[in-house]
Amino acid sequence: MHNEFKVVEGDFANAGKASSDIKKTLKQLNIDNQKIKKIVVAVYEAEVNAIAHAYGGTIYVDIDQDKIVVVIDDVGPGIPDMDKAMTKGFSTASAKVREMGFGAGMGLPNIKNNVDELEIKTEVGVGTEVKMVVNFQ
């Protein structure tokens, strides 16, 4: 099963729509509730990140019998220092992002805690691709 969602820069009103859609699909597929929560928390954090930091992008969702693969591919500033970005408490978020209840430097560590595989490819001035895999078993 394949699905795609657009990410629009600064569009906080729609942050979470992809995660919400994924949650509904996984429920219909009778995936374990705790598993669904892990997946949607990771995707939601990644969606918020993309909306907050990138200029736009696409979320690709692929679900098969064994796993879900979500790739968020954005055009944006990229991440200059990955180690810093993965450090709890480090954030470059704007005041607007903080007003939304995010931007405390917990996003990437939260994502890492909830997925089985996390791969981040980034190039400064070009963009970032975040690939998350969660196995159902």
């Binding site: 979470g16 939304m100 209840g101």
Partner: peptide, 14 residues
């Protein structure tokens, strides 16, 4: 914190 993301967060966190 009273905005749409508060509700979305609750949705994701069950």
């Amino acid at each position: 914190l009273c905005n749409i993301q508060t509700i979305r967060t609750a949705e994701m966190a069950n």
